[in-house]
Amino acid sequence: MRKVSQKKSSSDELSVISEESCGCSVDGQSCTITSMVEAGEPAASDDKEFSRRRFLSLLGAAAGAAAVIGSGIELLSYRAYAQGLPQTNGWTGNSGVTGSGAATMASSEAPPTHQWAMVIDLSMCNGCKSCTAACQKAHYLTPDQTWIDVFTLTDAEGKTYPMPRPCMQCENPPCLHVCPVHATFRQDQGVVLVDQERCIGCRMCMAACPYQARYFNWNSNVQYPKLSVPPSPEMPVPQRLGTVGKCTFCVGNLNNGLLSECAAGCPMGAIYNGDLKTDVAVNSLGSTVKLSSFLYDNNAVTFKPEQNTHPRVWYIQGDGQDLNDNKASQSS
């Protein structure tokens, strides 16, 4: 335990120092990436920590589940996320429950210090698909597995514009409600993850997702590299045949003070990683904005609000762009 925390704090310092010494944010990132991989290993073997977390989570879940829609026997469903990935936050309660933030707050002494979100500035996006490429490279995806995909929509003038679509990390995720085995769960920072070790491959979640954000591992002929950490919901490499996958929001990166792969890979700075708790959003160009004012000032919208999914991804639209225009999203 102590050893782990020491190592973690040292890596934190390392990242600060390196950032300072480099002075350039891009260099700083590359430095901290290596430090993250180092920090990843000790946490993986920490079983005691894992079971304690699990216990705490169950307690938290017990209090929270009462408020949950159709709660049933959901407590059984819990499976600790992030076995194998480092966590910079101390608080690890209440993972994997459909429960709302209210339940989280009420049931735990230490609330989550982050609530991850994303802002995509459509007026900045040039449709280069660098985000898709960066994501696929980092997560060893096949070309048709798109955690973030760039669609082409039509604006009011009839001109097309690119529209990147990651997983929306809905606060009311339909995929989570329909999963018969709780393989999809929502961790305490609001990120919806898939446990490929549990998924039975029924694809009900793909049917329920209004954003086409999920894909399936259809074929067995995919080659994966061997990583030092075992596959986890946050980093499902290698992926399991016959299970569902989707964007993980690079929650490991975010917890290590890094941008997600797509945001870091965007040359236009169109993708902001945000934190609803601290009200901060940052893009790859280093511009830091106050998330709430940024959304408000730019009339940010969510995609398909009528679905009542409450996405954690907001879009800023340019002139004439209308994300929720039916003509664009539905055609004959």
Partner: peptide, 9 residues
Amino acid sequence: EFAGHGWMA
């Protein structure tokens, strides 16, 4: 957060 350690107005 997020690598930049930037200044947020």
